[in-house]
């Protein structure tokens, strides 16, 4: 089932220099999608558009068939409830002055979701593998990996359909990274994940589908195993060959 469809979307801060040209793809429910590209590929711009932080210069983004409209409050409330986000730097993405409880409660409060918020927060903490007593502590009392778990708890507390993850494991140490990827894999049984990353290894470990971006265009898209086994575009081949591997 199609959750989000991006249809011929272009974007540029000025007319002369578009950063995104005619990009189309769909996000399907239950299929983790990886957006892979290097700096200048336009992957962050796509993310901003999907987060509703920018409007496309042309083209349409549809959510459950309905065109995205940032001015339609009712639509945006529904959209935000369904689409949450996790960011790269867990040191900057948590308000240092809020306790973990207030941080995780933010979507529940902002979207005026009824129900027992405390119970929802405790469940989210359990889902990301943090103890319940984390609730009354501040972000600075946690390590980088733990902070990213808190950020994940915030993203899933409102039980969204899709989590947009922006380089969500890139800033973490290897040993932490693999655990957060495992956690994401676990969570993706219930929630679809769209991972934006420059790291093919992480994307390959988590996503069933991949889109390869270069200079604001999609150069290749499809099932992860197909693309890894038989890359068609020269850029994809170069990217794959550039990933350092462990010695055999």
């Amino acid at each position: 089932m199609t959750l989000i469809s991006v249809d011929s979307v272009a974007f540029g801060y000025s007319r002369k220099e578009p950063v995104l040209h005619d990009v189309s793809f769909t996000v399907k429910k239950g299929v983790n999608l990886g957006l892979v590209g290097e700096s200048g590929s336009g992957k962050s711009t796509i993310l901003k558009l999907l987060l509703g932080l920018e409007r496309p210069s042309s083209g349409v983004i549809r959510f459950e068939g309905q065109p995205m409209n940032l001015n339609d409050r009712e639509f945006m409330r529904r959209y935000r409830r369904a689409v949450q986000a996790v960011f790269q730097d867990p040191y900057s993405s948590l308000d240092p002055r809020q306790k973990v409880e207030a941080i995780i409660a933010e979507p529940l409060r902002a979207l005026k979701i009824p129900g027992d918020h405390r119970a929802a927060i405790e469940q989210a903490l359990a889902d990301v593998g943090l103890p319940v007593d984390a609730i009354s502590r501040y972000p600075h009392e946690f390590s980088g990996g733990q902070r990213q778990r808190i950020a994940l708890a915030r993203a899933i507390v409102a039980r969204p359909q899709l989590v947009l993850a922006d380089e969500a494991v890139s800033a973490l140490d290897l040993s932490t990274r693999i655990r957060i990827v495992d956690l994401l894999k676990d969570l993706s049984k219930a929630i679809t994940i769209l991972l934006v990353s420059h790291d093919l290894g992480v994307v390959a470990a988590l996503c069933e589908e991949i889109i390869i971006l270069e200079k604001g265009r999609i150069v290749e898209a499809g099932r992860t195993e197909d693309i890894l086994a038989r890359p068609q575009h020269p850029y994809t081949r170069k990217l794959l060959a550039s990933v350092p591997r462990m010695p055999a």
Binding site: L174, S175, R177, I178, L200, G201, V202, A204, A205, E225, L228, A229, P231, R237, L240, A241, V243, R245, M246, P247
Partner: peptide, 28 residues
């Protein structure tokens, strides 16, 4: 060290790195 790590910690690091490698499939 990478082929037959002795220490638990090294093993864990090597396993993690190998997991991402495996996900990528065979080297092109």
């Amino acid at each position: 060290v990478f082929g037959s790590p002795q220490h638990e910690y090294t093993k864990m690091l090597v396993d993690a790195a190998a997991a991402f490698d495996r996900a990528l499939g065979a080297q092109q």
